[in-house]
């Protein structure tokens, strides 16, 4: 199940999510895309602890974290 939705149409690749994520979930592609930058990818979705920092701080509103019931319990 996909917990992290990254809207690549809206993302401009500022890379804040990579820097700010405490769990190293995000990374960049190796090659520059046609949009002119190395696009962001969700590299380690399983590491996500759903702190939602990236969702709240993404300047392009491109990240959605879906909270699952199971995870909510884990968080408690």
């Amino acid at each position: 199940m996909e917990k992290i939705k990254l809207n690549r149409k809206w993302c401009k690749g500022c890379g804040l999510c990579i820097e700010i994520c405490p769990k190293n979930v995000y990374d960049r592609e190796a090659k520059v895309s046609t949009k002119g930058f190395k696009e962001i990818i969700v590299k380690n979705p399983d590491l996500c602890n759903q702190c939602q920092l990236c969702e709240l701080l993404c300047p392009d509103l491109a990240i959605t974290i879906e909270k699952t019931k199971k995870d909510a319990k884990v968080n408690k």
Binding site: C14, F37, L56, P59
Partner: peptide, 21 residues
């Protein structure tokens, strides 16, 4: 209207999110 017209890394998108929340 999306993606926003703001530059990559512009804080205004974060503010937009905060206002809507």
């Amino acid at each position: 209207a999306f993606p926003t017209p703001f530059c990559a890394g512009c804080g205004h998108g974060i503010l937009m999110n905060a206002i809507l929340r």
